[in-house]
Amino acid sequence: MPTIVSVDDSTVPGEGSSRLLLLVSSDNKHIVVEEDIMSRSRFISKQVEGFEATSQRHAILLPFSSFVLNKVIEYCSHYRGYYLLEDDPDAAPPGRSPVREWDQEFLDVDRNMLLRIIKAAHYLEIKSLVGSCARAIADMIRGKTTEEMREILGVENDFTPEEEHSPSSKCTG
């Protein structure tokens, strides 16, 4: 669960046409962002609904760094006002589709950053971003051998020799 702290009016810039949210990253950076931009995040939307019930202003503390948070905000800003099927809770889950062109460029980051973004997107409940990251990761391992997959994602072979050579392993394989 996120920590929510009360803030005074001086912390959040004055309200304009769109309401502002204060997001606090794990490295204690304060980022002000328009509520509209972050409305793609179901997690943030739920938090905002909670604020309205208490009539208080809050900052939302998030468990990832400002670097990752800024990437997520960049994504949300790009798709501000766009309808994305994946983010529609009432729509049927989409089938496999290629990563959108802009997303491809956006996700052209190193492996660890990609994994951080997908974790953040999962936490913030932004399904479209989770989907794009997942497809990007799936694309990274497609057509690769087991050993290449280990190398790409930095995983060690931790099977015992017996596990590796058992008949059930071949069938799993």
Partner: peptide, 26 residues
């Protein structure tokens, strides 16, 4: 060591989602 890797720290449902996408293509 694997427990410490970023890929291992993804929630299982997310990793399963990645596997589903991968499985659909191969």
């Amino acid at each position: 060591l694997n427990h410490l890797r970023p890929i291992s720290r993804l929630p299982p449902e997310i990793f399963a989602h990645i596997l589903r996408l991968y499985a659909a293509s191969e």
